[in-house]
Nucleic acid binder design. Structure first.
Length: 271
DNA sequence: ATCCAGGCAGATG
DNA sequence: CATCTGCATGGA
């Protein structure tokens, strides 16, 4: 065991992993395995804590975002309405601090796709191109992705996204994406949207999950459904802008709570 | 079996 | 600027 995590009301591992922000994890009975970049952690759940066995404790403490005070954020966002309900339902969610490159390719795969399929496609990409870490494979280097080519991505089931993945990999091959972190959110979004296959939604997911910008509100089919009663049939980008105006620097958190709330409701409809 | 999924690029009003 | 369409795949 490398470190342990006390269970608190504002951290729940399963909620954090299952709220749609991350795809490389596996939950079994009482044990959860998470892969991020070339790292891996195993979480064993006890009544009051998780014991974490991993290759880099500092990496995972940062990854799990224990530096953010979720109590304050949750308190601030209470609206005695939908957002309060969503927070109550998903109060254990943390927004992970993921790798920008891993989120770019993951959310390219995610578009117009089901989450179980997204996970399996990403796993096949890692197994084929990622460094063998002994028992698992790392997320591939951009260079390896760039060399793979379209045919490879069709081969792993990416479908029409294969050219997006291949071309974006080549576009990123000579770039250090981490340097984009110096840019303000709107300029950074422009950089992302210039990548082939990256539109507003994927860019906003990368901004939120890979660059941890919280002044973004990714609008997908689920979020559109959430707000259809109040805003009607509105273009996703328009809706996103309205919601960022409303929620400001907390937009990303609100989005994640509402997304999880709506999706879980769908999975197990109330009787 | 038919529908649809954390949308996008490209073409057309 | 806004709206429309085709798209690969496989889980439900």
């Amino acid at each position: 065991m490398n470190f342990e995590i006390e269970k608190t009301p504002t951290f729940n591992l399963s909620q954090t992993l299952n709220c749609g922000q991350v795809f490389r994890f596996r939950e079994e009975s009482g044990i959860t395995v998470v892969n991020a970049l070339h790292h891996r952690a195993e979480f064993i759940e006890f009544e009051d804590r998780y014991e974490v066995d991993c290759d880099d404790a500092e990496f995972f403490k940062k990854y799990l975002d224990f530096d953010t005070n979720y109590d304050i954020i949750q308190l601030k966002l209470q609206d005695k309405g939908l957002v309060s309900s969503a927070i109550e339902f998903g109060k254990g969610i943390h927004i992970l601090r993921q790798s920008p490159v891993e989120t770019i390719f993951s959310f390219l795969v995610s578009q117009n796709n089901h989450i179980p399929r997204i996970k399996s496609i990403i796993e096949r990409i890692c197994d084929a191109l990622g460094r063998d870490m002994g028992g698992y494979h790392a997320f591939p280097e951009v260079g390896a992705l760039a060399e793979a080519g379209e045919d490879f991505f069709y081969g792993v089931g990416a479908g029409y996204r294969a050219p997006y993945l291949a071309r974006t990999a080549r576009e990123l091959a000579d770039i250090d994406v981490a340097e984009w972190n110096a840019l303000p959110t709107d300029k950074l979004r422009q950089k992302l949207e210039a990548l082939h296959g990256v539109g507003r939604k994927v860019a906003d997911c990368v901004l939120l999950f890979g660059f941890n910008r919280f002044d973004v509100f990714p609008v997908d089919t689920w979020i559109s459904k959430v707000f259809a009663p109040t805003y009607g049939d509105i273009a996703p980008e328009k809706l996103s802008k309205l919601l960022v105006e409303k929620y400001g620097d907390c937009s990303g958190f609100v989005q994640q709570w509402l997304f999880f709330f709506k999706r879980e409701e769908k999975k197990s409809p109330k009787v």
